[in-house]
């Protein structure tokens, strides 16, 4: 690929300082992510996966090194600009779904567009399309508590997709789901990736990682391996 990588990390470190004690959660990590990739980030608990994802998602800045989004050093952007980029270019999916409990599915899905300055009418149209894409349109007016975990996560994915982001960042998206539902969510991500959506997914389930073409492994904040397999292992959904 000759084009500029979507994301590039150069010698990124992140050190937390609490009560004078410094904890380095991510240490000297460098890699690129190209448009259209699906990347699994693996590692034991506390190895720095979430810290890394927060930096890619512009929620946090490295203590050292630089994160570039489409060639721009994100540390050099203003806080407001990073917020706008989060609304337009990043789609977050969390382990605990993080839907707003007091808003129904369609309102939750439309939320990023509020911060993109999209009109109410258009928000509704696009939220419906997005819900349709994850098979949740029939639950548009249900509140999170009326939905199962898998359904909530589908709504959350619809929300992550609504602004047509450059990249979807998922932090253990199946961590709170049973294995069957988790597999369905995973299939959804795989299908999205086949349409060209760039996805970075944190997981500590090796079974899940094997379904991603590329796997980055962290240990104690350091990058220990970055492997791309030529061909995916036999997968369940063959249609493409």
């Amino acid at each position: 690929m000759s084009a500029l990588p979507l994301i590039s990390l150069r010698s990124v470190s992140r050190t937390y300082r609490t009560d004078g004690v410094a904890v380095t959660a991510v240490r000297n990590v460098s890699f690129d992510i190209a448009q259209g990739e699906i990347v699994a980030v693996m590692g034991p608990s506390g190895s720095g996966k979430s810290t890394l994802m927060n930096m890619i998602g512009l929620l946090d800045l490295p203590s050292e090194g630089a994160v570039h989004l489409e060639g721009a050093n994100v540390a050099e952007l203003s806080e407001d600009r990073r917020s706008s980029l989060r609304a337009r270019s990043i789609g977050f999916v969390f382990q605990s779904y993080n839907l707003l409990a007091r808003h129904n599915a369609i309102e939750n899905v439309a939320l990023p567009l509020v911060y993109c300055g999209v009109s109410r009418k258009e928000r509704v149209v696009r939220a419906e399309q997005s819900l349709q894409a994850v098979g949740m349109l029939h639950r548009a007016h249900h509140f999170p508590r009326q939905l199962s975990g898998g359904e909530q996560q589908r709504v959350a994915i619809a929300r992550a997709l609504i602004a047509s982001p450059l990249i979807v960042l998922a932090d253990e998206p199946t961590g709170a789901l049973d294995s069957r539902t988790g597999a369905e969510i995973l299939a959804l991500f795989a299908a999205l990736n086949r349409t060209g959506q760039t996805i970075v997914m944190i997981t500590h389930d090796p079974g899940i990682a094997t379904q991603c073409r590329r796997t980055i492994r962290l240990h104690d904040g350091e990058l220990v391996s970055d492997e791309t397999v030529a061909e995916l292992l036999p997968r369940r959904s063959v249609a493409s």
């Binding site: 998602g57 929620l59 806080e79 407001d80 917020s83 706008s84 980029l85 989060r86 609304a87 337009r88 977050f92 993080n98 707003l100 939320l111 990023p112 911060y115 993109c116 929300r159 602004a163």
Partner: peptide
């Protein structure tokens, strides 16, 4: 607080 975190992650600026 969590709602605020979600809104910020989804692109809400501090002033929003």
């Amino acid at each position: 607080t969590r709602e605020i975190g979600i809104r910020r992650a989804l692109g809400g600026r501090m002033r929003d």
